[in-house]
Amino acid sequence: MTAIVKSHAGDGTDADALAPIVEQRRWLGLTVTTWQKILAPVAIGLLVLGLWELIVWKMAVPYYILPGPWRILQALVTDWKSLSGSLWITLQITGLALLAAVVLGALLSILFTQSKWLEMSLFPYAVILQVTPIVAIAPLIIIWVNDTLVSLLICAWIVAFFPILSNTILGLNSADHNLVNLFQLYGANRWQTLRYLRLPAALPYFLGGLRISGGLALIGAVVAEFVAGSGGTASGLAFRILEAGYQLKIPRMFAALVMVSGTGVLIFLVLSLVSYLLLRRWHESAVRREN
């Protein structure tokens, strides 16, 4: 007994399994490397904005052709009320489309991996749905569906759905073959194999798909609204861009554009954070290594 318990101490190989953690110096809770990662792109951004402002000012470019960053910021502040309302609409469409993509994508991929027949007969149609340009089918959907919001939601969902479906199917099928054998050996049923093996194995793939889909849901929502081109009480950011373009309120157009891009970046950051938090203990992609 004691001989065995002692074993990992005198082994040599076991002792250095837990590499010593090299502590980096921290400033305001963040390491130097993290600060570099934040500050380098911020510096580049400020530099470009400064140059832009300078060029617009020196060459006296009219603001209805190209407004400077300062003017855009002003438009963002003065029009905040109407723009933020539109942002909220776009966010709702994006969020609901993403939610539907996650639920249906995950459910369908589980169904597909349980039945080869189902996958063989339905997967090609998912591909067709994916490769058909959304701008081309959006008008049809808008005609068929009475409610504009619902039709936009469907368009955004079509774009966001496929990466989750295909990635999750890949993940569910990539469980370690020996582990599958092990489950078989212990007489695991389908449900147990799914719950304890296939779903956790698929998680990193699913999260990869989710990050792509988050951005696509936003693009789908904006593109569909461009096609719909309808105003009314419930208009998203895309309509604000169109509207400002017609009225030659270019700074306002840029402000709406900034909000769309900002939203996209934010969605990506949030989903990356979710992915990191779920995988940090075990998956190579989220594990920091010291070499």
Binding site: L179, L182, Y186
Partner: peptide, 23 residues
């Protein structure tokens, strides 16, 4: 197996519990 064939998402304890959980 020739390789340890552990579930990377589970702790050592959870990995060893697996046959019992399945039963």
């Amino acid at each position: 197996f020739q390789e340890a064939t552990l579930m990377p998402w589970a702790t050592a304890q959870r990995n060893v519990m697996l046959p019992l959980i399945l039963k």
